[in-house]
Amino acid sequence: MKIAVCVKQVPDTWAQKRLDPDDKTLDRESVDGVINELDEYAIEEALQLGEATSGEVVVITMGPDKASETVRKALAMGADSAIHVCDAALHGSDALATSLVLAKVIGDRGFDLAIFGSESTDARMSVIPAMVAERLGQAQLTFAGKVDVEGSTVKIRRIAEHGYDEVTASLPAVISVVEKINEPRYPSFKGIMAAKKKPVERLTLAEVGVPADQVGLAAVASAVESFESAPPRAAGTVVTDEGDGGVKIAEYLSSQKFI
């Protein structure tokens, strides 16, 4: 089985994220980049499915030069090779453009499965897997808490508010996985050394075959008009429990008309 796993480099959780005042995009240069945490579950799931089917796992990322660190991490975990789409014209791309590029790469290479994390911790839109499935006309099997492949059929548990749905489709399909679907492995020393020799194919936009006028800041379908720091929350009242802490909260809730 040929499995693609799409990963994204995001700012470290503890980093002070900021928007660039000029082009109003997330400033990725001034912060440390890490692999999107939820993508680690996607990589682990891809590796397990790859191992079970003697398949091939290819990491795909789109991002600046520095995203190659994230590619190396995925390779160190055990993926076989990587594709890094890197082109200055991609800067500022919105979800529509990002999904266009990823769908083109996935579609052209003929993967049986494309696996994503269920969202990125920076933009948090949670829309790319659905957009890629729509563009490819493939089954959308998202928010998976469990994935089983049998022959040419893939079955997932779609985690939902009410519990879960069991959803089935024929390959090829697009999957996103939720946190806790598995326990992502740590790269071993051997894995880290091996990753340095694994093939990473760097593609420009022209090599992918998407016209430059369909991506990047010039092609966005929505634009940030203005932004500002959120006003700090007004300092609240904090009391120490002297046996009546619950009553004190009840009085507060009553004053706010909750009870």
């Binding site: 009391v239 009553v247 004190k248």
Partner: peptide, 21 residues
Amino acid sequence: VADFGVVGDLFSVVPQLTEEV
């Protein structure tokens, strides 16, 4: 980020609050 906070053991504060509610 609290509008109202109590420093205390939740196992005494929360049941008391529930009872009050």
